[in-house]
Computed example of a mutant assay.
Amino acid sequence: MSKLTLGAYPHMLGFEQLERLLERSAKSGADGYPPFNIEQTSDHSYRITLAVAGFAESDLSITVEDRQLVIRGRQNDDADGRVFLHRGIAARQFQRMFVLADGVEVGEAVIENGLLHVDLTRAVPEAVVQKINIRKG
């Protein structure tokens, strides 16, 4: 199976950066942790929900870097002095990235009951028609 690139579509001009963003995004969440949902909450808004049980607000960071929403989690391993007979819940770090289209803005982030909700809105661009004059050469 050959890899399909945006370069295979000559009428798609200036989308090289989008292809790089998609490739980086595909690599970032390869292990599937933490699980997440993406829901459309209205015609122009979305909500990403990540299952972050065990993470405190201070363990999480949310940034926008180069048109990517980056959500990171890092827990401190507080097992010092504790004796575990079984340890199935490990302190684990993660990084999830989501590529944002032009006009998508990150809004509020709320953590409740082990779920991190990040709201996004998409601005509706005005339709612009530009007339290009043709001159004789």
Rank of each mutant, 00 (worst) to 15 (best):
L85C: 11
G103V: 07
L4T: 10
F98Q: 02
G114T: 08
V70W: 01
I134H: 11
R67V: 00
S61L: 06
R24V: 09
V128R: 14
R24Q: 14
A91E: 07
V64S: 14
D43E: 15
E19I: 05
H117G: 04
K27T: 08
Q130Y: 05
A101T: 05
H11V: 13
K3Q: 12
G29E: 06
R47P: 10
Q93D: 15
V106S: 01
L21K: 08
I71T: 11
I134G: 10
L4F: 05
A101V: 07
V64M: 10
S58K: 15
K3A: 11
L13M: 12
A26S: 08
A51E: 13
E19C: 05
R87K: 15
T49R: 09
Q75M: 12
Q17G: 09
L21Q: 07
L4G: 00
L4C: 00
F84E: 15
H86C: 03
K3H: 09
V64F: 03
G103L: 05
H44K: 12
P34G: 12
N113W: 03
L116N: 04
L6E: 02
A109F: 02
F15M: 02
E65A: 08
G29Y: 04
Q95D: 04
L4A: 10
L50Y: 05
A26H: 08
Q75C: 01
A91V: 00
G7A: 14
L22W: 06
D43C: 03
K3W: 02
M97V: 15
Q75K: 12
F84Y: 15
K27H: 08
R122L: 15
P35V: 15
D59A: 08
S58L: 03
Y9C: 13
L50A: 00
V52E: 01
H86G: 05
I62D: 03
F94V: 09
F98A: 02
I134W: 10
E16I: 00
E57H: 07
D102Y: 11
I111N: 06
A30P: 04
G29W: 09
Q68N: 13
E105Q: 11
R74P: 00
V70C: 06
N113D: 15
K131M: 10
D119Q: 10
R122N: 11
P125I: 09
G7T: 12
R82C: 09
L120G: 01
V83A: 09
V118A: 04
A109C: 02
V99Y: 00
N76I: 10
